[in-house]
Every structure is written in C-alpha cells, then in structure tokens.
C-alpha cells in the first residue's frame, strides 16, 4: 500500500481537556451499561431486592415497607457499581493493558481519574433513577431528595476510591473474587439489609464505622425527612480519603 506524501506529517498536540473528559467518561459509562454482568450486579439484583423485600416480609421492617427498603437498595446500588463493579472492571482493564495505552496518550493522569469518577457518577445516577421509579410504583413516598443526591455522590466517591484500591493492586481473578466476597459480606452484615440498630450491640458499634452502614443510615435518615448526622459524612469521607491516598501508592498500570 502506498500513501500520499504528507499523510503522516507530524502535527502533534493534546486534545481539548473537556472533549477528552467527555469521550473518556462516555466510553467508560457505556462499557459499564453494556456489560451484562455489570447490569446484573448494578441494576437487576438491587431491583430484585427492592421488589422482593417490599412485597415479601422475610425480615421485619417498619411499615410502609417500601420506605424502609428503598434507602437500603440505593446504598446497595452504590456498593455494587462504585465498589464491586469498578474494582472488577479495573482489574481486567489492567490485564488488557488499557491503562498503559491511555497513559501513553496526551490524556493527563488527573483526567484519567476524573473520567472514571464522572463515569461512576453517571452510572449511579442511572441506577438511582431506575430504582426510584420502581420504588415510586411500589408506593414509595420520599422526602429529603437533596440530601439523598449529596449522599449518593459522596458514597460513590468513597466506594469508588475503595474499588480502585482493590482493583488497582491485585491480579484480575483475585480482584473478582474479593470484590464479590466483600459485596456479599457488606450486604448481609455491613448494615445494609439488616439495619445497624438491629444488630447485636457489640457488632453494631463496629458495623456503624463501616462506609456501607454510614451510607445506609444516612440515606434512611435523609429520605424520612431528617438531616443525616455529621458522623455519616465523616465516616464516608474518612474511608474515601484513606483509600484514595493509599491507592495512589498501590495502583499499577498493568
């Protein structure tokens, strides 16, 4: 094959930051929402729990049940996508060399991180909308939506940082196993399905310090019209900052 002279004449330069951010975040969000396993984890399981726990009285909940279930399912949705989904995707992205590929482009490191954060927030927004619509159909009567949005955003950043910490350091298969185990443990014993207050007192004081319990308790308070206490914000911020700082030291490109 021959190429006209001048086809590859150098004309280097970086793209516009906003365009890089837009294309990168859009690509990441599209990949998540197109992946069958991710959709199962981030949407179908939370929706199944929302409908199941609302309609079937397997655990004791205050009435109306949907008002008690929805905040927990929203917290689970954040745990599923920002932590488990993110960690697994990052583990396999590293395996397939995408971080190295992107690190070799003009995309600055801060945009590489920001693009993933924006994509994570977009996915959580999609989850929150779908879950809220189904909950409303089940008779949910929320209040404090602004607090809910703020908590979902902070929860996404916190669990996202934890997801990057896990997915950025270990082998893809190990990440896959650990991310699912942590998801399951936090779902059952991390203050999501069973409220922290209903746990045995010794266990409750420990569980209350977990980000899953903080997010669930915060959302429950907010959506019943209260103001989420300071401890919720501090717990989520501390876990997020701690994981983020650690992740900048442990995350590897491949």
């Amino acid at each position: 094959m021959t190429f006209p002279s001048g086809t590859f004449t150098p004309a280097p330069g970086a793209g516009r930051p906003l365009r890089m951010l837009w294309v990168h975040a859009r690509t990441e969000a599209t990949l998540t929402l197109r992946n069958g396993e991710q959709v199962l984890l981030t949407l179908l399981i939370p929706l199944a729990l929302l409908i199941g726990l609302t309609l079937v009285p397997v655990i004791a909940l205050p009435s109306p049940r949907v008002d008690a279930v929805t905040p927990r399912v929203l917290a689970l949705a954040v745990l599923s996508s920002a932590f488990t989904g993110q960690a697994i995707a990052l583990g396999f992205d590293r395996r397939y060399g995408v971080l190295k590929r992107l690190a070799a482009t003009a995309l600055p490191r801060w945009l590489l991180v920001l693009g993933r954060v924006v994509a994570g927030l977009v996915v959580v927004a999609v989850q929150a909308v779908v879950i809220s619509v189904v909950a409303l159909l089940l008779g949910w009567s929320p209040s404090g939506l602004l607090w809910m949005v703020a908590l979902l955003a902070l929860g996404t950043l916190c669990f996202g940082a934890l997801g990057v910490l896990l997915g950025g350091a270990l082998k893809a298969e190990v990440v896959l196993a650990l991310a699912n185990v942590v998801w399951f443990v936090l779902l059952l014993a991390g203050g999501i399905v069973v409220a922290t207050a209903d746990l045995p007192s010794g266990m409750a004081s420990v569980v209350a310090l977990l980000p899953s319990a903080a997010l669930t308790d915060g959302l429950t308070t907010a959506l019943s019209g209260g103001v989420p206490p300071l401890s919720v914000w501090v717990t989520l911020t501390a876990w997020g900052v701690g994981a983020g700082v650690l992740a900048t030291r442990t995350t590897r490109l491949t």
Binding site: P12, G15, R16, W22, L31, Y96, L99, R101, L102
Partner: peptide, 27 residues
C-alpha cells in the same frame, strides 16, 4: 506497546475514537 492495550469490552472504533480525542489534530 507490546501486546496492544484496550478495554476488554470496547469496540475497535470506540477505542480509536477515544485515543483520537486525546489529540489536537488527529488522523
């Protein structure tokens, strides 16, 4: 890089568009 590099689930054209978006005047 040796062995390439892309998201496992990304379509070929999407990946190239993403890398092209990082350049000022791409092919």
């Amino acid at each position: 890089p040796q062995g390439g590099g892309a998201y496992p689930g990304v379509r070929a054209a999407e990946m190239l568009r993403l890398v092209a978006a990082c350049a000022r005047d791409p092919l």
